[in-house]
Simulated scan of single mutants.
Amino acid sequence: MHEITLRELGPGEDDVLDAVFAGLSPTSRLMRYLGPVPELTPTVRRALTAVDGRRHLAVAAFAGGGAVGIARLVREGPDRAELAVEVVDRWQHRGIGARLVQAVLARGRETGIVTVVADVSAENVPVLRLQRALAPEARGRSDGAEIHFVTELAAPVLPAAA
């Protein structure tokens, strides 16, 4: 069993993005990008590596010497962000997606994100289960092919003063 480690990504960590993308099957890419994506265009690649720790937050998971997943929050406003997560196929169904989402949401709360939105394929059963498990109070609206979720984050719990 490999130990899973998480860490926040910095700008330009193209190698992490490339490793995760390469580990996604065509079906996983379809579920993640909501359409067929055989390769990342230069524009999309630049956007996904433009992590700055404030407007665009990303946390990656590593195991066995390589990147196995990424969760990101990209701001759509001062306190609202879109969530996306991807885990390479051979590492799916091991709880990595849940750990990534929890980590990026915690980081997002620290930066003032209050509302998180996510568009999920109606066929992406594992992510729909994850959404319900992590945010059962989330509001979802379906257009048939996709479900648009809106989740209000709870304020971070601060330790009591001694």
Rank of each mutant, 00 (worst) to 15 (best):
2 H>N: 11
4 I>Y: 10
5 T>F: 07
5 T>C: 11
5 T>E: 14
6 L>V: 13
6 L>S: 05
11 P>H: 12
14 D>N: 07
14 D>W: 10
16 V>C: 07
17 L>Q: 05
19 A>D: 12
20 V>W: 01
21 F>S: 01
22 A>C: 08
24 L>C: 11
25 S>E: 10
29 R>S: 06
30 L>D: 15
31 M>S: 08
32 R>H: 04
33 Y>E: 03
33 Y>D: 05
34 L>G: 04
34 L>N: 11
34 L>H: 09
40 L>D: 04
42 P>D: 08
43 T>D: 14
45 R>I: 00
46 R>G: 07
47 A>P: 00
48 L>T: 05
48 L>S: 03
49 T>W: 01
52 D>E: 08
53 G>H: 08
53 G>W: 08
53 G>Y: 07
54 R>P: 00
57 L>V: 11
57 L>N: 03
58 A>G: 06
59 V>F: 13
60 A>M: 05
60 A>Y: 06
61 A>L: 09
61 A>W: 05
64 G>N: 12
66 G>P: 02
68 V>S: 00
68 V>K: 00
70 I>W: 06
71 A>Q: 04
72 R>T: 05
72 R>Y: 04
75 R>K: 14
76 E>A: 13
76 E>K: 12
81 A>L: 09
81 A>K: 12
81 A>E: 04
82 E>K: 02
85 V>Q: 01
85 V>S: 02
88 V>N: 01
89 D>P: 06
89 D>E: 15
90 R>E: 15
93 H>T: 09
94 R>C: 08
95 G>V: 13
95 G>E: 11
97 G>K: 07
97 G>H: 13
98 A>T: 09
99 R>N: 09
100 L>K: 02
101 V>H: 04
102 Q>K: 15
102 Q>V: 09
103 A>H: 04
103 A>G: 06
105 L>Q: 02
111 T>Y: 05
112 G>W: 13
114 V>I: 14
115 T>G: 01
119 D>P: 01
119 D>M: 07
120 V>E: 01
120 V>W: 00
122 A>Y: 08
122 A>H: 02
122 A>E: 14
123 E>P: 01
123 E>W: 03
124 N>E: 11
125 V>H: 09
125 V>T: 14
128 L>M: 07
129 R>M: 12
131 Q>T: 10
131 Q>Y: 00
131 Q>D: 04
132 R>D: 13
135 A>F: 15
136 P>W: 14
136 P>D: 09
139 R>L: 14
140 G>E: 10
142 S>K: 06
144 G>P: 03
146 E>I: 13
148 H>P: 01
150 V>T: 15
152 E>K: 03
153 L>K: 05
154 A>P: 05
154 A>Q: 15
155 A>C: 05
156 P>W: 03
156 P>Y: 04
160 A>R: 15
160 A>G: 14
161 A>Y: 05
162 A>E: 13
